[in-house]
Write a protein that binds this DNA or RNA. Structure first.
Lengths: 343, 343
DNA sequence: CTGTTAGCGCCTTCAC
DNA sequence: GTGAAGGCGCTAACAG
């Protein structure tokens, strides 16, 4: 094997010379076109491996305007929730020979807009973004680009293109109704990092409680700061202080917070679930292993990612003429998983 | 604002015509060159925003061979550990206007090799890969490419270029010695998804126990399957069955497993830490909130990512002539955090 | 400070 | 089934 030279990059032409064919033929082989005679193909392949040739994607994208690139925007990498979504995306994209360019928007529409701009500069064939609430400019760019866009995680009011997710409002309401049905009467809400989806959950909570005349704003404790187990503990202390202990259950915006609440209850010798009910959201693996096991809401994170990716592929591959109507909203649903932390 | 046409992409020339300057001038403005007269710059900027022009990166990369792209290869997205590392990487790369292309190798050197090949096709300016153990071909490509490569997570024997991480062997040995010092005498090991780093931890464990004549292979339980809380529980049952209960502590390869062990101990009414000591690895947030609080090993994940990224930048920016020696190994260290799950 | 020329490496198109 | 010409959109290098 000839040692490749660092610094001088090999091109189609180098391979072509080595294999005694034209660059065009090499290009065909590289891209797996059928119509190349077998012996020529083998000769080219041999040259490629011998030289260690790696095609230049920029040149290829520029010339063909096919990038095989999917852009993904998520608001946080540290949130476990997005990992599963990402796995769903990668598991579909990579085997299909697509690449994923991932941006973290840090829950900021401004950063999101910046990311969209850079992303669009790469001629992506599809974009997956989180929820609604994009800036006006971002939305305009997206619409002008003609690139398929999927908004994931939550149901959004006025989707840009396609929407895959579930109604956080409904989920919040369902949890609350279930708590009411278990005869908890003074239900609180704890939320951190209140993004639109968290707000929707809260709205569902308030809606459900209002319906039974059980809403007391003193029992709603939120913070814009990031979510964590320790934040859950401290918000719980705040809740108890605010209400002077007049509270018999809490719906936590996610499981980390709920785990913190559980821990704090133990420290304060509050009997869960008899005297106090706790319900989380997301149903992370730890929920089932908490003590007592945490009630939560299971959402199909992986499937949100994979379905988003799949519908993008459908849209990419559909012939422009036969516009068979693709759905513009896919509901991935949710499920209450009531365990030992609620009656 | 003129509505941009979907489908027909704007180019430098379009902007140039609109602004009545040459494409080159537009290029300079887009790239923020100083030497453009203020009024011209403003005129160009106006044209850019009015048209909604977004530069074509493929063309730019092709022409300039500067990609502002960093490739990152990690073995798993679902493992929390890599999230923190990724955050460290993104937090340095993005503000510096670099993009990150992320690949998941699924712990497979073959997938890793494939990813490296595609990555190298994008002319990345730096690569961050996980640990050692690359295929021969992968290593050859990497070396031939001349691109700065950082191997992160663990200390590797024969680094390709730069290595950022810590010695998992030393960490494993340290944990074990600490357990011995706390007079645990029959110490077991539980590990899932035994990658090279997990194996190094195990080797450290075996080394430390051999030194005090305490190693019994029956107490080493591992599986190639993925790690999880429930896997920890089931490996623990296996450990107890294998040794007929003749075991008084366990070093778990990570915290998820350890949490599963803790849960199982509670179910089996095994007194932790008196009768049985449990130590995890990684010190994830939940560790401190477990019951009893989990002893673990804290490693600087975020810092592994950020330091890897920083040293790549140093290498990119260093003048080729004054080759001020950059370190080829950066030790990010580790720290035992002994809590209530060990005596 | 601004414009011109040439070409990055590949693919589309059209010959043969 | 294979090759030749031309251009994708941008920027390096030079000219003015």
């Amino acid at each position: 094997m000839t040692k490749p030279q660092a610094g001088k990059r090999l091109t189609l032409k180098d391979v072509a010379e080595k294999a005694q064919v034209s660059p065009m033929t090499v290009s065909r082989v590289v891209n797996g076109y059928e119509g190349v005679r077998a012996d020529v193909r083998d000769k080219v392949h041999a040259a490629i491996t011998e030289l260690g040739y790696i095609p230049n994607r920029s040149a290829s994208v520029l010339a063909s305007s096919k990038s095989k690139l999917i852009g993904v925007l998520i608001p946080s990498l540290s949130n476990v929730v997005f990992n599963d979504v990402l796995r769903g995306i990668y598991d579909i994209a990579i085997p299909a020979n697509y690449q994923v360019l991932l941006f973290n928007t840090h829950y900021s529409p401004i950063e999101e807009e910046r990311a969209i701009r850079t992303l669009l500069g790469q001629s992506p064939e599809g974009l997956i973004i989180t929820g609604g609430g994009q800036t006006y400019a971002a939305r305009a760019m997206l619409e002008a680009s003609g690139v398929p866009v999927v908004q994931i995680m939550g149901k959004v009011d006025d989707p840009i293109d396609i929407n895959v997710g579930f109604s956080h409002f409904d989920a919040g309401a369902a949890v609350t109704q279930s708590l009411v049905a278990k005869s908890y009467a003074k239900i609180g809400f704890i939320g951190a990092r209140m993004d639109t989806r968290a707000c929707d959950r809260l709205a569902g909570f308030e809606y459900a409680l209002s319906a039974v005349n059980g809403l007391d704003k003193k029992r709603v404790i939120t913070t814009p700061q990031p979510s964590s187990v320790s934040m859950g503990a401290s918000l719980f202390r705040e809740l108890m202080a605010n209400t002077e202990g007049d509270c018999d259950a809490v719906f936590c915006c996610n499981d980390d917070l709920a785990l913190g609440v559980l821990h704090e209850c133990k420290k304060m010798h509050i009997n869960v679930p008899e005297k106090f009910g706790v319900c989380g959201f997301n149903d992370i693996e730890m929920a089932a292993y908490a003590e007592p096991a945490l009630s939560s809401v299971s959402v199909n994170r992986y499937s949100m990612g994979s379905k988003a990716m799949n519908i993008i592929f459908q849209k990419i591959n559909q012939q422009d003429d036969k516009v068979l109507a693709l759905p513009d909203y896919i509901d991935t649903g949710f499920e209450l998983v009531m365990r030992k932390s609620t009656r």
